[in-house]
Design a protein around this nucleic acid. Structure first.
Lengths: 216, 216
DNA sequence: GAGCGACCGTACCGTACGTTACGGTTCGGC
DNA sequence: GCCGAACCGTAACGTACGGTACGGTCGCTC
């Protein structure tokens, strides 16, 4: 286990020195470039540091990977959608913004790489990375979206039993098969415009399901 | 590359002797048990065969894995939904059946394992497995669902521009975040009943989006 | 029953990589 | 100007595992 990385999961208080962040950046770059096959030697070389330092700071290979994922995941905290009034238009806008954030993140190189890594680890009974990615990916967005959805329900703009359920359908409508296809190696990088269009479509569909019928 | 496994992708004509299938079964079992870390030695031991035979039949480790995935994937070909008349009820029933198939497959141990494996390979620039899994997973279902959707459109029961698009939203509504959560190591195994309920909900939602409004 | 091909079990080889060890350099504190 | 801590670069160690070689057994053919 890592020396600096203590509790393995969700210790966002963890702080890295600038030098350490350089190392983590190097590790992340190599991860994106060559996936899980990166070697400690290559990280050391890329970061211009010694392996000894690597081991001193991160304990072992897993510690380094965990630190990298953790550190990167912590950066995802996108800005809260600030003030939204509770009319149909602004609700729709908030939701669409979330859809764009979510989709944009998920189709990114870094997201694909980190998810691949975490999935690989999960396949080896090491669920630490999976938990971190889960926590900072889908769950983070969900946590931010939930109050919006519930305010929408409060205002009788939306109808659903459980915000959990509603969120999951939202996720499905936004992500569809894009994530699994990317993870499986299909290479497509939607432009900003496509993402926006997809987000709009997903929002439309979500509202078609969960919006209260505005009976004139 | 494998000796027996020729074209790497979608050569379903490939046939394995019973003995070879025993070996592949052993490999699959080990894969489910320990993920990508299975060794050639362990497969040989489990299948009571020599490593030499393994290499003779499958070429190398990748060949064995490819053969395993390919062979397993070929078994997924679920029965076509046979005759469906084109009223709203039977259309709905067909779609719901697809949803159950899809969800049931995806939450299964074997699916999770094989997807993990293929994703790992995709992360190492070896897209063969990813292509196979993609081909036999999502794409196979889509291929079977497509005529149903288009017949529905023909009969003015459904409205959509592209069946591709409609399928992808269907996929999203059915799978939601279940697949990625399982891949990341969350362990939940929905009962038959839950799957059926989720499939029904997804169908409901899909129709809410794509069914033509039956204006009384 | 001799010859032969397919296959098993096991011992062996080569290598890549995680991990450790060590000599040399920089730098802040006194 | 000296000391120790932190760090760099590199060499060395240990091992796990992919891949190969080989002797032995079974079963089939002539």
């Amino acid at each position: 286990m890592g020396v600096v990385v203590a509790s393995a999961v969700a210790n966002s208080e963890e702080v890295f020195t600038p030098r350490q962040q350089q190392v983590l950046t190097a590790a992340l770059d190599l991860l994106v470039e060559q996936g899980d096959r990166l070697t400690m030697t290559s990280v050391a070389r890329r970061a211009s540091c010694s392996k000894e330092t690597l081991y001193k700071w991160f304990g072992d290979r897993d510690g380094l990977l965990t630190a990298t994922v953790q550190w990167q995941a912590a950066k995802v905290k996108a800005p809260q959608v600030d003030r939204w009034r509770l009319d149909a238009a602004s609700l729709r806008q908030s939701i669409e913004q979330f859809a764009r954030d979510l989709l944009g993140t998920i189709v990114g190189d870094v997201s694909v790489t980190l998810n691949r890594l975490a999935i690989g680890h999960a396949g080896a009974e090491k669920h630490g990375l999976g938990a971190i990615v889960l926590e900072n990916g889908p769950l983070a967005i969900r946590k931010r979206l939930k109050p919006v959805l519930e305010a929408g329900r409060e205002a009788r703009l939306l109808r659903f039993d459980s915000s959990e359920e509603a969120y999951r359908s939202f996720f499905g409508l936004v992500v569809r098969d894009a994530q699994i296809r990317l993870l499986l190696g299909e290479t497509f990088t939607p432009a900003e415009a496509e993402i926006a269009r997809d987000a709009a479509r997903a929002t439309e569909q979500f509202l078609a399901i969960y919006a209260v019928h505005q009976a004139a």
